[in-house]
């Protein structure tokens, strides 16, 4: 760029350049320090508030009740630190630039860019993102790609507008056949259990999900009508229920308690009222639950 420019104003485009002449009376609208100070201050407040409220954990989900859930929290924290640092640095850089380079009558430093800088920040961004992606990948694999445990308790979850139904296979360990024609909430057969299939005779259908603590559970998630969702924040698990699909979801809850199951997929006018409970109970309590339910069916 060893060329300096000489321009003749007023020949070719004379009319234009004459009217292009700067409107010099606008100094007050532009040069004041007030907007620079106010802007920088707002950004500092934003950074301080965000840094405090995210790091103080004033708002957070309750502790996870599964091992992959704890790993997920770990990945969340890692991502929070990485993005938090970038957030603070970039926002403060913006505030500094706004304050430091406000119009004080100086001349702007002419620069068209800097290839070295572009290469450095692009490479750093790529490395950070790839590391995050691969670490996150492990957590996802742990909770969603593990092969089904042989001794897992299998429970079928059926969603419909705006209820959850949970079906246990009963003593024979087999789910009975389902016939959509026989679905009738009014006659007490909300799932459409086929009366002619003996395997279905001992099936247990319950409005809440009860599982024993420290035992692997495999849910088989289905939907009868529209897309619903199964979300328990303590399990750190969320899965859509899609008509036409049976989607497996595994977990082993390691703490007893009663946790809310909510629907997060817009499913109709009762969406915000669609919920159930997950009861994680001791082994003995689970046996008792099965007995009671079997007697009641």
């Amino acid at each position: 760029m060893m060329v300096s420019y000489i321009y003749s104003f007023g020949q070719h485009e004379g009319r234009v350049s004459a009217r292009n002449h700067p409107q010099r009376n606008q100094k007050s609208a532009r040069g004041s320090a007030a907007p620079a100070v106010l802007f920088a201050l707002l950004i500092i407040i934003l950074v301080a508030f965000s840094a405090y409220s995210f790091s103080a954990r004033a708002f957070r989900a309750p502790a996870p009740i599964t091992t992959p859930g704890a790993a997920l929290d770990h990945q969340y924290n890692l991502t929070l630190y990485v993005t938090g640092i970038v957030f603070i640095l970039v926002q403060l850089a913006l505030a500094i630039a706004i304050f430091r380079f406000r119009d004080r009558g100086q001349r702007a430093r002419f620069s068209r860019g800097n290839n070295a800088a572009e290469i450095i920040w692009t490479s750093v961004t790529i490395v950070v993102f790839i590391v995050l992606a691969f670490l996150g990948r492990k957590v996802w694999a742990e909770s969603r790609l593990a092969s089904p445990t042989a001794n897992a308790i299998r429970i079928e979850v059926t969603t419909s507008q705006f209820v959850y139904n949970f079906r246990y296979p009963g003593a024979d360990g087999k789910f009975g056949r389902i016939d959509p024609n026989q679905i009738s909430a009014a006659t007490g057969n909300p799932l459409g259990l086929d009366a002619s299939d003996p395997a279905g005779k001992d099936d247990i259908v319950a409005p809440e999900l009860t599982v024993p603590v420290d035992r692997p559970v495999e849910l088989l998630i289905r939907s009868q009508d529209v897309v619903h969702n199964f979300f328990v924040r303590e399990l750190r698990l969320q899965q859509d229920a899609v008509p036409g699909l049976t989607i497996p979801l595994q977990f082993t809850a390691n703490r007893t308690g009663r946790y809310e199951i909510v629907c997060t997929q817009l499913c109709g006018l009762g969406h915000s009222r669609m919920r159930s409970f997950l009861n994680v109970v001791p082994e003995a309590g689970y046996e008792q639950f099965l007995k009671q339910q079997a007697a009641a069916q």
Binding site: A97, F101, S111
Partner: peptide, 12 residues
């Protein structure tokens, strides 16, 4: 950020 850095910022 590179564009405003070193500039003469007019707060319109």
């Amino acid at each position: 950020l590179g564009t405003i850095w070193g500039g003469k910022i007019q707060f319109t």
